[in-house]
Amino acid sequence: MKASVNFTLRQATIDDAPLFYSVIARTMRDLIIATWGVWDELLVQRESYEDSSSPNAQVIQIGDVSVGVFTVERFPTYIQLEQIYLLPKYQRLGIGTRLLNSLISEASQSQIPVRLRVLAVNSAKMFYEKFGFAVTKATSDFLYMEKSP
């Protein structure tokens, strides 16, 4: 892994829908096709629009360049990591590690778990396991993972 780069987070807006689409298309298209056999262009565009307008969605930036998306929902009894997608050029720079460590620290202080869902075919499972996440449920499409405090 390269040295960690400085980045900031800002609230996502509907104007970020093309970024959400681009990040998902570039990082998840092959995994989505491997899981469901098809890439539904209209569905992904609609979901990108919806996701970008979520109050829980943030854009990851390096300087003034938008490089990824980060969506987290906070509940009284757990934190749900919904999305952490980085454009390929900005992966393996320590950004995901810092974001995940921050969530784990927040959850630990509140004595609640962090939960996430990953496509079963996604090698990101190994990334999450390095942080102590364990599979709590598996379906043919998804692995549900949790890190207890």
Rank of each mutant, 00 (worst) to 15 (best):
V23Y: 04
V23E: 06
V23L: 10
A25G: 11
M28F: 11
R29D: 03
L31S: 09
L31Q: 12
L31N: 14
I32V: 04
I32S: 03
I33T: 01
A34T: 01
T35P: 07
W36T: 03
W36S: 07
G37I: 09
G37A: 04
V38W: 04
V38P: 02
W39Y: 01
W39A: 00
W39R: 04
D40L: 02
D40R: 07
E41S: 12
E41H: 08
L42N: 15
V44E: 11
V44Q: 14
Q45R: 12
Q45F: 12
R46S: 07
Y49N: 14
E50A: 15
D51L: 10
S52T: 08
S53K: 03
S54P: 13
P55I: 05
N56D: 13
A57Y: 02
A57W: 04
A57D: 00
V59S: 04
Q61E: 14
I62F: 13
I62L: 14
I62Y: 14
I62K: 12
I62D: 08
D64N: 11
D64R: 11
D64T: 08
V65R: 11
V65C: 12
S66I: 05
S66E: 09
G68K: 00
G68A: 00
F70C: 02
F75A: 07
P76Q: 11
P76T: 10
T77K: 15
T77W: 14
Y78L: 07
Y78R: 01
Y78Q: 09
L81E: 02
I84L: 11
L86A: 01
L86F: 06
L87C: 01
P88A: 05
K89A: 14
K89N: 06
Y90C: 09
Y90T: 07
Y90R: 02
Q91L: 03
Q91T: 01
G96M: 06
R98W: 09
L99V: 09
L100M: 05
S102T: 03
I104K: 08
S105T: 14
S105G: 11
S105N: 12
A107K: 00
Q109T: 13
Q111F: 04
Q111W: 04
I112G: 04
V114C: 01
V114H: 02
V114L: 00
V114F: 04
R115M: 03
L116G: 00
R117D: 05
R117K: 15
V118H: 00
L119E: 05
A120R: 08
N122W: 01
S123R: 14
S123V: 15
S123I: 15
A124C: 08
K125P: 00
K125T: 11
M126H: 15
F127N: 08
Y128M: 10
K130F: 02
G132S: 06
G132M: 09
F133I: 00
A134P: 10
A134I: 15
V135Y: 10
V135L: 12
K137N: 14
K137S: 13
K137W: 13
A138C: 11
A138Y: 12
D141R: 13
L143G: 06
Y144S: 07
M145H: 07
M145L: 10
K147F: 05
